[in-house]
Design a protein around this nucleic acid. Structure first.
Lengths: 247, 247
DNA sequence: GGAAAATGTACATATATGTGAATTTATATG
DNA sequence: CATATAAATTCACATATATGTACATTTTCC
């Protein structure tokens, strides 16, 4: 069950992140198609908690820096080491495609850092973007780091759906693809989940964290180059990852 | 009316900002005294939206960097000019008390930047902290920037409460205090709202934004020094504020 | 290795909550 | 300055939602 008002808080936050200017109750209500009274309650709640204020008279609400203060506190713990951002930054620059660091979230894989391609046609992904762990290159690069028992436990919760022609729709299919990936030396996906999207990924364990790096883009552009992209990823990780410790 | 699940999202966020480590469903439910099933729904919603993930197996949930990404996008608009942080930083260092930048939010005043005193006994305030606009030095320094009509409109919404012995409990009392403040050259408060708390504030208009600076601390320590603290604030603003333009 | 404890998940139901309509307040217009 | 129009609040009620209970899964402990 989705908790509507919880989701609405996030929607509002994203709304402000997008429009980047104060908005009145009426504007917000109209934008989302929410009743004014409901919007009123929500805004009052966020204001009361210190997350919204009125920067100038009659110009409406805008988030206070409290969001930022909280997010900073949260993120200063175990941040990703700086070289991982360098990594996807370099990869995106060299390949012209979108590169990301990905982490597990149950049966999904979450993008926790992204550098987008600058191409007009590109893989559009943002931090927080989620994809099925079993039907994506990045996700399978995570699964490779699991023990058999852990994988089984994940499999039990997966609802296998035919997202595309090549989506693995059974546990066996996934396991086979994992074995192939090991043999191949990297994970790949050709529209397994998103139409026209292809990508290459490799596991990226950092400390006891299970992460992966992925480079993805439109199939017609990146498709033929997947092997060399994979090699590039491996080389770049090798170059940037500190040799001394696990971190 | 307060929207409970909206507030809960913020609570969860603040919880993570405090504990700074992943937490399981059970831990979160117990911490807040929420039913497991409700907690489950909330966490599922936040996860689904890409704001929570599971950094390592069986270690529970933690916020994704998406919070930070959103907060950054929101805050890069019209950020406070850097000299305002310098201002409260200097003021806090010189006085040993807590210094803040404050903005209006209806009948309340919100702290939008804070540098805390390092003293053991101090005014504990965080970004997002809210106080009644009419019963605080910082709030009245905002009201001074309003037109009479705007002030009247605010007064109509205020519920006058006797927070402390010197709280102004009528429109006239507030207006008188505002006139006194003008004569005096700064706003002051002696436990008008918070027990044992005294402070000095002055208006700080920036562009068309109505802000104020306040220095506040325990009455016994800052009380006798309020006039000189006020003078210090004025001098420091004068020193740091760029002379050229309104920004 | 098996039982017990803890944790996570599903669902029907009572109830807390969102909302439409009414009221008040603010702003624009003649 | 009066009137019209739009925005912000309030409130009672129907309904969408949180939760108690039951079940499943995982982990711990003996």
């Amino acid at each position: 069950m989705i908790v509507r008002q919880a989701a609405n808080v996030l929607e509002i936050m994203e709304f402000f992140a997008q429009v980047k200017k104060p908005a009145t109750l009426a504007e917000i209500a109209d934008h989302f198609g929410w009743p004014r009274s409901s919007t009123f309650n929500l805004l009052a709640t966020l204001s009361e908690k210190g997350y919204l204020y009125e920067p100038r008279p009659r110009a409406g609400f805008y988030p206070t820096p409290r969001w930022l203060a909280m997010a900073r506190m949260i993120s200063e713990v175990e941040p990703l080491p700086p070289w991982t951002h360098q990594l996807i930054s370099d990869l995106s620059a060299e390949t012209g495609e979108t590169a990301s660091i990905v982490a597990p979230a149950g049966v999904m894989a979450v993008f926790i850092d992204v550098v987008e391609s600058k191409a007009a046609i590109r893989y559009f992904a943002t931090i927080g973007h989620r994809v099925p762990i079993h039907a994506t290159a990045s996700g399978r690069a995570l699964l490779l780091q699991y023990s058999q028992e852990e994988r089984d436990s994940v499999y039990r919760k997966i609802e296998f759906k035919q997202y595309g022609p090549s989506t693995p729709i059974s546990i066996e299919a996934v396991e086979i693809e994992l074995r192939n990936s090991i043999a191949r030396g990297y994970c790949q996906s050709f529209a397994d989940y998103s139409r026209d999207l292809a990508g290459a990924a490799i596991p990226l364990p950092i400390g006891d964290r299970r992460l992966s790096v992925v480079v993805a883009g439109p199939e017609f552009r990146i498709g033929p180059k997947v092997p060399e992209v994979a090699a590039l990823i491996a080389r770049t990780v090798d170059r940037l990852r500190p040799k001394t410790s696990a971190a």
